[in-house]
């Protein structure tokens, strides 16, 4: 599905130049959860931003379904049709309600079909039904995180990329999100995420640890 090959990323120029990623390769297949561990600042977010085309790598190749993706435009099209990105921070648009926010990618992609009922059903299922008419400023951080995951699920992508989806959340909320990902996995969706959450590790197909800008397989569940 998605393959990252020899990804390098450096910030800054000349003496200030710091290499964050030093040749990283990783693959995600449909129905797999691939998790990346690593200290804060080790470059996890950088890698996931590169995987979703939000950030250009200094070197390396990204291919999706066998096709090498280079251009900004191609990445936007992927994000609109194939890849849903749940990033670390607040990612909802303040001017739309929760329900509208989770439907938005569908309409941005140019679809005309009314998704309201389906979206509401998904929110109900995730225990977020009562929030549908709220604006992002009216809900908590944990709720917002769950809503972003719901938005990713509703889009029915083939790949979900999630950056620490459960960090800073209470155990119950974290568990709900974990359940959401498991259900996605069962539907054959590929998941690439960074995490510290032991719960995540237990459902992952492969786990990597990021150190000094390189990825190494981690622990027993790694291949």
């Amino acid at each position: 599905m998605m393959t990252l090959t020899n990804i390098e990323k450096a910030y800054g120029r000349a003496e200030e130049r710091t290499e964050i990623l030093k040749g990283i390769s990783v693959t995600v297949e449909p129905g797999q959860i691939v998790s990346i561990l690593g200290r804060s600042g080790s470059g996890k977010s950088t890698l996931l931003n590169i995987a979703t085309g939000m950030l250009r790598p200094t070197k390396g190749e990204i291919s999706f379904n066998g096709k090498i993706i280079k251009q900004k435009k191609e990445f936007v099209r992927l994000r609109s049709k194939e890849i849903a990105y749940v990033w670390q921070g607040q990612s909802l648009l303040h001017q739309f309600t929760v329900l509208e926010n989770i439907c938005l990618p569908h309409y941005i992609a140019g679809n005309k079909e009314d998704l309201t009922e389906k979206a509401q059903a998904l929110l109900d299922e995730l225990g977020l039904g009562h929030l549908s008419d709220y604006y992002p400023s009216q809900i908590s951080g944990g709720e917002a995180r769950r809503v972003s995951v719901a938005r990713a699920l509703l889009a029915e992508p083939s790949l979900i990329v999630a950056d620490e989806p459960t960090s800073n959340l209470d155990a119950d909320t974290a568990q709900t999100i974990l359940d959401m990902f498991c259900r996605a996995k069962e539907k054959g969706i590929a998941i690439l995420c960074s995490t510290h959450d032991m719960g995540f590790l237990s459902v992952s197909d492969r786990i990597y640890k990021m150190t000094d800008g390189t990825l190494e397989p981690y622990g027993g569940s790694a291949e």
Binding site: V76, R79, L104
Partner: peptide, 15 residues
């Protein structure tokens, strides 16, 4: 940030 969010959910430069 707003436009970054739009881009992340698939809105292209033209939109």
């Amino acid at each position: 940030k707003e436009f970054g969010i739009l881009s992340s959910i698939g809105a292209d430069g033209t939109k």
